[in-house]
Amino acid sequence: MVAESARENKRVLEVKNLKLHYLTSQGAVKAVDDISFCLNRGETLGIVGESGCGKTTTAVALMMMPSPPGKIVGGQILIEGKDIVPMTETQIRKQIRWEKISMVFQGAMNCLTPVYTIGKQMMETLREHREMAKEEAIARIEKYLAYVGLSRDVLKRYPHELSGGMKQRIVIAMALFLEPKIILCDEPTTALDVVVQAQIINLLKDLKQQLDLSFIFITHDLATEAEVSDRLMVMYGGKIAEIGTNEQIYGKQGPMHPYTQRLLKATPLLHEKVEELAFIPGRPPDLLNPPKGCKFHDRCNVVMDRCKEEEPDLREVEPDHFVSCWRCRES
């Protein structure tokens, strides 16, 4: 019991049975369907999975800003122990979004307005949220620019005058300057070259320590996650397939869920020449009409009869290692 409560104390975010469905004219797209996980203070949790498995949807749910026709249809999101799902939009805006939890959106660096200078855009965003004098705002902006390794002369520049890496740093600075404790980064390095990518990753590691932040780092790249995430959560078809520590997933033993194993095999090594890249044949489930049983069963190479009928739930198979697969149960 003592151990259990110590664990809970470390939690800055806890998600319980969360469901976010897109209520389209053809029916509900179950993009996030009954997922539970937590985020500890000072850690980076990685979220990976194939395109369309619900990574971005999970993040926008945590921000309480689903894109239409999306709706949170169940579950709880506890930030510092308090459920934010029942809150009104006004409460969320005042107390939660950008204040306690902020997000670097997928492709955000391409969404900086081309006609305004970086300074103007940062200033407006900051003053939308905080009543502060201009000088104070500038000081705050410069402080965070320094954190992300940029000098103040970027303020006078327009987005097209900056490199992709610089724009990404601006967007990260904007996610930071309201001083939230939880930062969601959706594919923050995907569009960048590997050198800048390594620099951004180094930057996030540094910020995590300096500012005592907790990160959720979304990408589809298991290699990147290996270098950033303390723990990894693998999603498949709107559900969690596996959660494990970096060592559990990338260490000798390797992941347990057949899907994670195949994903890892499909991650090429630079210095290994291959004739064909490995991939997982078949396609992710239709989220409008999800299949019966385990969502992965039609692509799984170790499928059993039971898998086609019953869906396995997420179980802790060893400390901190959760897997939803019938094959990964002791009995």
Partner: peptide
């Protein structure tokens, strides 16, 4: 560029 490429192995976090 080549040195910066990430690799899917543990112990780098």
């Amino acid at each position: 560029l080549i040195a910066a490429v990430c690799e899917p192995v543990s112990g780098k976090v």
